[in-house]
Design a protein around this nucleic acid. Sequence first.
DNA 1: GTCGTATGTGTTATGTTATAACACATCAAG
DNA 2: CTTGATGTGTTATAACATAACACATACGAC
Lengths: 167, 167
Amino acid sequence: MSSSADPEETLGFVRHDHARCVATAIRAAERHCADAGLRFTAVRRRALEILLEEHKAMGAYEVLERLQSEGLGAQPPAAYRALDFLVANGFAHRIERLNAFVACSLPGENHVPAFLICRNCRKVAETTALPSAGIPEIVAGATGFRIERMLIEAEGCCADCQEEREP
Amino acid sequence: MSSSADPEETLGFVRHDHARCVATAIRAAERHCADAGLRFTAVRRRALEILLEEHKAMGAYEVLERLQSEGLGAQPPAAYRALDFLVANGFAHRIERLNAFVACSLPGENHVPAFLICRNCRKVAETTALPSAGIPEIVAGATGFRIERMLIEAEGCCADCQEEREP
DNA sequence: GTCGTATGTGTTATGTTATAACACATCAAG
DNA sequence: CTTGATGTGTTATAACATAACACATACGAC
């Protein structure tokens, strides 16, 4: 992946120290699980590591293949269970547009995530939506609708992929 | 559906004259197709009518069943083609969260739609997101990401379904 | 320690959503 | 009435997801 010598790679399209970001995410998950009495098992840890390797949306079957090749769970339910656990505990998010999953870039923060999804390379950048983004909430309030979950996904083309097409 | 005598029913949770709203939507589609040289065929028209009957998210296979029972296209591709046409031309929207489709409530208007989705009854209300909703756009601009499509879905429980549970 | 319960995993089978590929039909323009 | 573009029928299969039940492991109560 990294062809340059420096430790900076893109996080969703923003440069950052990736090795450190992976380590941080894993440690955050360990901590959270220890505190909450959850079991951060081998399959779950490995699934998170796989998602973290690139900031890319991966299908459940894609993750499954990787797990299989390491002898860690051979059938779809294994992957879905691990991914569901990660999503339920905020370590990963589901990208509905792609029926795929991505590691959370902001573990620990209690946020309403918004995603920028590159159609071409499937890289995903995560930002946090401000409460002021909630136009629907105004309407919801007016009609008695109780919002439980918000989903904000922007689909398009990242800078790198734009360059590739018209260099 | 309507147990009351008056013509007012809910549009996604807001009361309105439903018969009129269906007629308007169909006419808008006819007009748009005529103007743009598109063919508003029997399957396409019927698919739109089916979606319009309730302001509810319907799966492609659910729409297909209805089409089949009227002898209008027997296999999945028929339904997907009709639905894709409706979505491509702004007569319907795809609700990613549900892998389902819903008729557009604001045909003709060039809008960024936002949806309120009731988990319980699958009714969907459509509102238009204001440009100020676009927090992601700020980030996108900063990182050179070109947004092509925005997707805003709020999932929760509508007023009617809340009442049913705690009357 | 060991017993019992709760939680996680393995495995089989199947359900649901979506599309590829190719043949045939229809339409509108020349 | 031919031609090309667009839409539909049909078969097959891909991709995504879960139900159900058996077995394993972790962990607290005793």
